[in-house]
Computed example of a mutant assay.
Amino acid sequence: MCNNNTEWLLKSNCEFDTLGMATSKYPDKKVLSFISDEKYFNSIINNKDIVGIICTEEIYKRYDELKNYGVIIAKDPKRAFFEIHNMLAKTEFYWKKFKNKISETSDVSNDAIIGEHSIEIGDNCIIEPGVVIHPGTIIGDNVIIRSGSQIGTSGFQFIKVKNDVIPVTTAGRVIIRDNVEIQHNCCIDRGVLGGDTVLDYNVKLDNFVHIAHDDYIGERTFITAGVKLSGRVVVGKDCWLGVNATVSNGINIGDNCRISLGSVVTKDVPSGTTVTGNFAIEHSKFIEFIKSIR
C-alpha cells in the first residue's frame, strides 16, 4: 500500500476500531498506534489497548515483541499514521452520520446555526441566537447555550514532518451531558482521533472559555471567564478553575481541585489540591514564596 509521500507495507493483519497515541488509554477500544522513537517502545508494549503498530523496518527487526501485533512498515511512521487517519476521517470509520434529532421541547433560536446532520439536542434545552452547533455534537437535557458560542469546532492539530506541515482532520465528537450551562462566546472543539470532548453532568462555563479537542470535564466543575484548556486535558469532579487560568495539553486535574485565577498549569494536579501561579504550584508554597520576596 502506498501514496505519493509515504510507502506503507502491511506486515501482519489486525482488527482495530480507532487510532491513538501510545501514551494514552482507550478503554474498550482496539487501537492502531505508531512508534518513530524507540524511547516509546515500553509505552507501546505496556498499553494493552494497542493491537496494531506502524513502525520502521529497523524497529520491527529489533524487537521480537512486535510480532504479536498487526504491523505496518513505513519509512516515516508518524506521517503514515496521520495520513491513514485523514483517509479514515473522510469515511464513517469513527462514527456514523445520522439525521438531526432535536427535541420539540427545546427552544432553539431561529438565529442559531445548526449543522445539516449528526446533531442531537435533548429535552428542555435553550439555544440562543448566534450559537453555532456543528455536526458530531450530542447535547443532553436541560442544557443552556448562550449567544456567540461555537460547539463542535475543528481541533487545532497540525503535524510537522521534516519540512512539511500536515493538517490533522478532526474526526471526533462533542458530548454535552444534562444540565450543562455554557455562557457567551465559548468554543468547544470536537475530539481529533475519533475520540470525544466531554462536558459531564452539571458543568458550568463562564464567558470566553476555550475547551480544546479531546478534553474531559467532570461533573459539577465550574470554569470561569477566559479559561483556556489545551488538548487532551482531564478535569475531575467538583473543580473550580479561576479567571484566565491556562492548562497545558495532556494535563490531568483530579477531583475537588481549585486552580487560582491566572494560573498556568503545566503539571498534573492531585485531587483536593489548590494551585496558584505561573507556573502553577501548590497554593501554600506559592504564598510562602511571595512572602519571601517582599
Rank of each mutant, 00 (worst) to 15 (best):
R146M: 07
I253K: 08
N252S: 14
E83K: 00
I73S: 02
D214V: 08
R173Q: 13
I166Q: 05
G152T: 08
N252T: 10
V168D: 00
I287V: 15
K101W: 10
D255R: 02
L241D: 00
R220A: 07
I114E: 12
Y40E: 01
E120G: 09
H283F: 13
D215P: 03
E219C: 11
V269I: 07
I126C: 03
D28K: 05
Y69Q: 12
Y63I: 06
I223S: 01
N3Y: 04
G218R: 04
D206E: 05
V243I: 14
S24P: 03
K228M: 14
N202M: 06
D17V: 08
I73F: 01
I182D: 00
I119Y: 11
V227T: 08
L19C: 08
H283N: 09
G140I: 10
T273N: 06
Y63T: 02
L9Q: 15
D215E: 01
S33P: 02
S109T: 03
D200E: 13
V161P: 01
C55G: 13
D28V: 00
G172H: 06
F34L: 04
I72P: 05
T221W: 03
E58C: 05
F208I: 10
V51N: 01
V203S: 11
V233P: 03
N256K: 13
D123T: 06
I113Q: 11
D111G: 09
H117R: 14
D49R: 11
E128V: 06
S149H: 03
S149G: 07
T266W: 12
G152H: 08
N42T: 15
D268H: 03
D196Q: 12
S248G: 05
N179K: 06
G155F: 05
I145W: 07
C14G: 13
N46R: 15
E58M: 04
E92S: 05
S12N: 14
I144T: 09
G242R: 07
A112L: 04
I259H: 14
S292P: 08
I281C: 01
